[in-house]
Nucleic acid binder design. Structure first.
Length: 247
DNA sequence: CCAGACGTTGTT
DNA sequence: GTCTGG
DNA sequence: CCAGACGTTGTT
DNA sequence: GTCTGG
């Protein structure tokens, strides 16, 4: 009935709220629906009620750099939830995940289901005309991806700047900056309780570290005061419970 | 039958 | 709403 | 996923 | 430790 060439773009919440959800606030959903595993999608109750067809996702960037690149079209499923107390319908979706392709497998063992090309996108979106079994054949790992290292700025979801996608060169060593370098040198050489400037560092070396970690690594252990005694006492209690008559 | 879950990623 | 577990 | 909060009473 | 917010 519906024209398969017709497409609708609508804002949707990421994190599918099943149509049968009964609470008044969709945020009280007690399980994750950001992703949807392709291997169980047809069994999971949360993903069965919806139309099935997926929204496409595109990076809206029109900068010169990306002119010869296609949008990364990820397959998803959506549903429509109506608040039991009335109000606007909430459309929401999950992104389908698959085993990662060979190229990405060293980075992560899962990847989004990427619809590789316009034909695949059309078929996925035409959930009226394309049988489920056919559509599911589109959901597979594709090797047709390009990728590059980016800054850890991307780790904080509040950051939404070009820096999140700008390539970084992992071979470049970070020179201590004027201010930060001075602080690190002070911590290494002048701070109270520092004996060995080359004392072992915890955590990954290339990741910016919080000052508290530097203090933990470089400072001498706290003297056993009242708090220290209490800490010991608490530890002994748990150890006694955890080791039943072993030796 | 009724009660309760309904999900993914990660890590321990 | 629908499936699973008990 | 990662970062950051994690709470209550009262008053404006 | 665990949940929420982004």
């Amino acid at each position: 009935e519906a024209d398969p060439s017709e497409r609708v773009i609508a804002p949707m919440r990421w994190g599918l709220v099943p149509s049968w959800f009964k609470e008044r606030d969709p945020r009280s959903l007690q399980f994750n629906t950001t992703n949807c595993r392709s291997d169980t999608i047809l069994e999971k109750r949360s993903f069965k009620s919806g139309g099935g067809g997926g929204p496409q996702h595109g990076l809206g960037d029109r900068e010169v750099v990306w002119e010869n690149w296609r949008p990364l079209t990820m397959a998803g499923v959506f549903d429509c939830w109506e608040p039991p107390e009335g109000g606007d319908a909430l459309y929401s979706f999950s992104i389908i995940t698959v085993d990662s392709c060979h190229a990405l497998s060293d980075i992560h063992h899962r990847m989004p289901a990427i619809l590789d090309g316009e034909a695949a996108v059309s078929q996925w979106l035409d959930f009226g005309g394309v049988p489920t079994q056919e559509a599911m054949r589109l959901i597979r790992p594709t090797e047709n991806v390009a990728f590059h290292p980016v800054s850890t700025v991307v780790n904080n979801s509040r950051n939404d700047t070009p820096e999140c996608l700008a390539p970084v060169d992992l071979a470049v060593k970070k020179e201590p900056t004027a201010g930060g370098g001075a602080l690190l040198r002070w911590l290494a050489t002048k701070s109270p309780g520092t004996e060995d400037p080359a004392s072992p560092r915890r955590g990954r070396p290339d990741v910016p570290q919080g000052s508290s970690q530097f203090l933990r690594g470089g400072a001498s252990p706290p003297r056993l005061g009242g708090a220290g005694l209490l800490r010991r006492w608490l530890k002994r209690e748990t150890e006694a419970e955890d080791e039943p008559a072993a030796k």
